[in-house]
Design a protein around this nucleic acid. Structure first.
Length: 428
RNA sequence: GUGGGCGUAGUGAAGAGGUUAUCACGCUAGGUUGUGGCCCUGGAGACGAGGGUUCAAUUCCCUCCGCUCACCCCA
């Protein structure tokens, strides 16, 4: 009986690491460009944080959380998303005392008990950003710009940005009422999935995948027609700011989509999503976010406006692979040390000396010379240093460059000389 | 939770109710005594599990398990 990884988890093998390194590197680079600082929160939290923060009625809380009682009797949950934790940390650590807004980002594993499929696993990874403590539409635009730039810097083109406003809590009830009324009036034309949805979450009928529903949803009442006052001003200001972005970034564009809604309870006003334009995959959303002004209050903090997004790294990597986009490849060592005969220990000593001199060095396995050369080649090494009894005796090592038409040189057998030789040829 | 597809070496594939299960890549050892990539020759390595039908099952049937895709949901 062999052990297998749990369903919905993945081993990220060395060969896949270039993709992961790339999505993490670009994430931190772009976040820093916008003045966002990294925050790490615990992998698990009090179950109650998510029940309150994510919303007790959501599927995430109802059937997807990894929850357990620990040995002290506390109810613990592996985080299914990042925003609730960041807000908890903001409140707990008194980050409202910092200059506002506080700009933070995270990149970490999340856990949801779901049926795995393309672009969806049980342990998955998100890059998320949050700007807390500023209600102005400029911050909305900034977050959207950040998300767009992240995707663009990864090299992914042809993404569609859809945006909508859910308005504030006050006006929302009226809107949902109207929406329900409308869908009920055409209920006989809805497929049963959507009739069920209508009783459960009327907003979600809007983004149904069913063809029959989509035509009806297009004609449904729009939330942006129900928003008033500050929320309306906010929305219009945001659209103007996005128009500016179109001038700065030639490829940037957005589409107001009144059928865009969110699954989590805490969102208000601005919501948005980035997804590939060629809607092939069903789990297509690469980045999704929005404003969540009510959340801080829900979690027991002071009312504090905030907005953020989260992006699925697995989905981004899937897209990178689909588009066959290049990612920085892992480099081989600068030196592989090949030893023959009784030179084994001299080789090990030389390898240590080279590493001490900051030259990446790998010792070839003790096999035939041919096998060791082949090993060096497979490691993608820049050079081999050949060390046999002859060399040890004469105090001279053969240093061979493995590149195209690389030559071979005799170098004095000491780490400093070899390091200098290797670094000099590497810099040419 | 619901519904489809699929389970043969590490990977990708082929195969037949009946002796030793095939191929490619990969791995590994060699091919003149100390020089990689190309080429050649060896070697290791597999029928997901259980039950049934049959003289005989890896092949047909059933169950389970696993993988995968979609719905649902969501990043």
């Amino acid at each position: 009986m062999n052990f297998k990884r749990p369903r919905g988890t993945a081993d990220i093998l060395p060969e896949d690491q270039p993709y992961w390194g790339h999505v993490y590197d670009v994430a931190s680079k772009v976040a820093n460009q916008f003045g966002y600082h990294r925050i790490d929160t615990p992998t698990f939290e009090d179950t109650n944080l998510f029940e309150r923060g994510v919303g007790n009625e959501t599927d995430i809380v109802q059937k997807e959380m990894y929850s357990f009682e620990d040995h002290g009797g506390d109810l613990i949950t592996l985080r299914p998303e990042g925003t609730a934790s960041v807000c908890r940390a903001y409140i707990e650590n008194g980050l409202h005392n910092l200059p506002q807004p506080v700009r933070m980002y995270y990149a970490a594993a999340m856990f949801r008990y779901e049926r795995p499929q393309a672009g969806r696993v049980r342990q998955f990874h998100q890059f998320g950003v949050e700007a807390i403590g500023d209600a102005s539409p400029e911050v909305d635009a900034e977050i959207i710009e950040l998300g767009w730039k992240y995707i663009a810097d990864l090299g992914i083109k042809n993404v569609t940005l859809r945006i909508n406003s859910l308005g504030d809590a006050e006006g929302r009830a009226d809107y949902i009422n109207e929406l329900e009324k409308y869908f009920l009036s055409v209920a006989d034309q809805l497929p049963k999935v959507d009739r069920d949805r209508l009783t459960r979450a009327p907003l979600r009928v809007l983004d149904s995948k069913a063809k029959e529903t989509q035509a009806l949803a297009n004609a449904a009442p729009k939330s942006i027609d129900f928003i008033t006052g500050e929320a309306k001003e906010h929305w219009e200001a945001l659209l103007a700011l996005l128009d500016n972005l179109e001038e700065v970034y030639p490829d940037f564009s957005y589409k107001v989509d009144h059928r865009l809604v969110r699954g989590l309870d805490y969102y208000n006003r601005t919501v948005f999503e980035f997804e590939p334009s060629d809607v092939s995959g069903s789990q297509g959303t690469l980045i999704a976010g929005g404003r969540y002004d009510p959340l801080m209050g829900i979690l027991g903090g002071q009312e504090t406006p905030a907005i953020g997004f989260a992006g699925g790294l697995e989905r981004l990597i899937l897209e990178l692979k689909k588009l066959e986009l290049p990612v920085p490849s892992s480099k081989g060592p600068e030196v592989v040390v090949v030893t023959l005969g009784g030179a084994g220990s001299a080789g090990a000593a030389l390898a240590s000396g080279l590493r001490a001199a900051s030259v990446s060095t790998v010792l070839a396995p003790k096999r035939s010379m041919k096998a060791q050369m082949r090993f060096a080649n497979q490691q993608n090494a820049s050079n081999v240093v050949i060390l046999g009894d002859r060399e040890v005796e004469n105090g001279i090592a053969s240093v061979k460059s493995l590149g195209e038409g690389g030559g071979q040189a005799e170098v004095s057998l000491d780490a400093a000389s070899i390091a200098a030789h290797v670094l000099a040829s590497g810099n040419q």
